[in-house]
Write a protein that binds this DNA or RNA. Structure first.
Length: 328
DNA sequence: AAGTCGGGGGG
DNA sequence: CCCCCAGACTT
């Protein structure tokens, strides 16, 4: 990966310290091919990997923030929001001490606002239960709100260099196409990824998989002719139906966005970032919905810990249960 | 296993 | 217009 700063280059490619893939995860006859694939991908990553802001730090808190932001959210948008968020909340203690309303406000433009509530709560838990240190173990990370299988492994690998294998949509697609050559269930994909991660270069390896999925092994129209793994890729060799479109793919229930509950919720939360709204203003923001619909939106946001009813109307949640909230 | 949760970028 | 995105959580 090219970085502007001198002396910031990544370590040279070398064989992993552990002689994986482990038996059972990959057929032993394919060991040589997988080893070559890994070397090729790491070499490509060093030369052509993305230089993203959160890859320049090892601060576990900053990396945790980036991973929460990156859940179902494109890199470019996170790249814009992440520095400002960290400027507002430089440490986990600062985030833990901040009212939820301020965190939600700093979350503007990222979407899925419940993540801001969960991150806020996670910060409090890290301060209260982990002495202000982000846990390094996957199991402990997974107990934090908003941190699931992917995010826990991402933090373990990127912040602590643990040999964990975060499997996001990019990695799952690359593994299904290049390594398995067949659709993978989530469980099989995780197992395969676990067996591939080099113990001494976990961060680079996982970043490399993600970057390949972003730059070449894309979902829509993959750029196989220029892909650095073309010579090692099972799908490219065998052809046939795309392994990444079957099996583990999930349906697409999402309907029209405008006029949906998500759309109204997003609009209302964004309006509330300006401050408390009188009930008439809330009603005006929800034009097009009947009384039941408006109640559904407001109650849903309250249940998610995003908003709370106050004396003057509706406001972003302060982080503590108020009398107004309890009284409804 | 299926639904919900934002919003924007790209074909 | 449609699909997709560095997922997590509830039912």
């Amino acid at each position: 990966m090219r970085r502007a700063r001198a002396g910031a280059s990544l370590p040279a490619v070398s064989e992993p310290a552990t002689p994986d893939p482990r038996p059972g995860s990959v057929a032993s006859g394919e060991h040589a091919r997988v080893v070559a694939l890994r070397a090729d991908l790491l070499a490509w990553y060093e030369d052509s990997g993305r230089d993203l802001p959160w890859r320049r730090t090892r601060d576990p808190y900053a990396i945790l923030v980036s991973e929460l932001m990156l859940q179902q959210t494109q890199v470019d948008r996170v790249a814009r929001a992440w520095p400002a968020f960290l400027a507002a909340f430089p440490t986990v203690e600062a985030l833990a001490a901040a009212p939820v309303a301020e965190v939600v406000t700093a979350w503007r433009g990222l979407g899925y606002n419940r993540r801001a509530v969960r991150l806020s709560e996670a910060a409090r838990r890290i301060v209260d239960e982990h002495g202000g240190r982000v846990p390094a173990e996957v199991a402990a990370l997974e107990r934090l709100p908003g941190v699931g299988a992917y995010t826990a492994r991402a933090v373990a690998a990127f912040a602590f260099g643990r040999p964990a294998a975060p499997v996001d949509t990019n990695v799952a697609r690359v593994l299904a196409r290049a390594v398995a050559g067949a659709p993978l269930t989530a469980r099989r994909g995780q197992e395969l990824a676990d067996g591939l991660v080099p113990a001494d270069r976990a961060a680079a390896w996982n970043h490399a998989l993600m970057d390949l999925g972003s730059r070449h092994c894309t979902a829509r129209s993959p750029r196989c002719p220029t892909c650095p793994l073309a010579a090692r890729c099972v799908w490219y060799a065998t052809g046939g139906q795309d392994p990444a479109t079957g099996g583990a793919r999930r349906p697409r229930p999402q309907g029209r966005f405008e006029g949906s509950d998500r759309w109204y919720r997003g609009r209302l939360v964004d309006a509330l970032r300006q401050g408390t709204m009188p009930w008439e203003a809330v009603e005006a923001s929800l034009t097009g919905l009947d009384e039941d619909g408006r109640r559904r939106i407001v109650d849903g946001l309250a249940a998610d810990g995003l908003v709370a009813a106050g004396d003057e109307g509706l406001a972003l949640a302060g982080g503590e249960e108020t009398e107004a909230t309890r009284d409804g």
